[in-house]
């Protein structure tokens, strides 16, 4: 072979090889020089989390939550989608006792269906709650559910649906991920610990009293505080709205007198009824996968 051609090939190979050796050497040196210790606990915690990065625990993602856990700054019970099984795995890794872990579930603090809300104005705008909330006078109650389903869209588990104009939680599917809480522009959804399958919740968010509430809603809380007076301290009034103390409320507490006393049906039992309650699931729930039905667009085109 022509020696010039041979040397050209050799020169190319030599250049590449030399660059590879130099680059490899620099990176190898950097790997040792800039070595950062990664806590194996963080890795184990991160693996135990569902990795859906929902942010329900209050941290940016599962990775951040794992780091906070390892630093001892967070409780191992904050993961909604992971549930009790996940909390147990986390506490096993951390070597702490979590005690009783209650599942948290979303509760809509409004009980007024479409025909029970008064002073409604026909609304033809953008069919989202976020947009409708900017419009004054769409319905009499400025605190109640708008029924346009922002929470339904936000829910990754298909667990909340607008039924008869009111957002209704499907407690068989809810994981307490707080996506609906963030989506609701009127902040009427919150998560509460479910110590039994069915618990009592205040189903009104209107902080006004008597006539002001009655003029806008057939079932709104009028702030009479009758329920609080006979509840034995389990219910306290916050302004004109009762608030149930869920730290002390459990299976043994009997609030039936308060519920019977309420004239406005503002206190409702939420959750699955005991007989149809499913076996507690040990597995981590997976986010809903799209099927044919959920890809069909039912919203009206208003272009």
């Amino acid at each position: 072979m022509n020696p010039t051609v041979l040397f050209s090939v050799l020169l190319s190979a030599l250049t590449l090889g030399l660059l590879a050796v130099i680059g490899g050497w620099i990176l190898g040196w950097a790997k040792n020089a800039f070595h950062v210790e990664v806590d194996p606990t963080v890795q184990a915690l991160s693996d135990a989390l569902p990795q859906v990065n929902c942010g329900g625990c209050g941290y940016v993602g599962c990775g951040e939550y794992a780091e906070a856990l390892a630093r001892g700054e967070a409780e191992p019970t904050l993961c909604g989608p992971g549930g009790a099984a996940c909390s147990k795995t986390l506490s096993d890794i951390l070597g702490v006792d979590v005690g009783d872990v209650w599942p948290i579930r979303a509760v809509v603090h409004c009980a007024a269906t479409l025909d029970q809300r008064l002073q409604q104005t026909p609304y033809e705008g953008e069919p989202t709650c976020a947009a409708a909330n900017l419009v004054a006078g769409i319905q009499g109650c400025a605190y109640g559910c708008l029924g346009l389903g922002d929470c339904e869209v936000a829910c990754p588990y298909d667990a909340i649906h607008v039924e008869n104009g009111l957002a209704t939680v499907d407690y068989d599917a809810c994981t307490g991920c707080r996506h609906c809480v963030a989506a609701c522009p009127r902040n009427i959804i919150s998560v509460i610990p479910f110590k039994q399958n069915q618990i009592l919740a205040i189903a009104c968010s209107n902080p006004e009293i008597g006539p002001a509430v009655k003029s806008v809603c057939k079932v709104g809380c009028i702030g009479c505080s009758a329920c609080a007076k006979i509840s034995g301290g389990l219910i306290e009034m916050e302004g004109a709205l009762p608030r149930i103390d869920y730290d002390t409320y459990d299976a043994s507490s009997d609030l039936t007198p308060s519920v019977d006393k309420c004239r406005m049906e503002s206190m409702v039992y939420v959750g699955t009824t005991p007989e149809e309650a499913p076996e507690p699931e040990e597995e981590t729930l997976q986010p809903l996968r799209a099927d044919f039905e959920s890809t069909v667009d039912h919203t009206e085109w208003r272009g």
Partner: peptide, 27 residues
């Protein structure tokens, strides 16, 4: 030797990104 430019550029980019990543992570 400009026939080698593409492969060397890719090599240089990947290498410098790796280096910068380690450097920033540490310091």
């Amino acid at each position: 030797l400009s026939v080698l430019s593409y492969i060397i550029y890719i090599f240089v980019i990947a290498g410098s990104v790796q280096f910068v990543e380690m450097y920033v992570r540490k310091l």
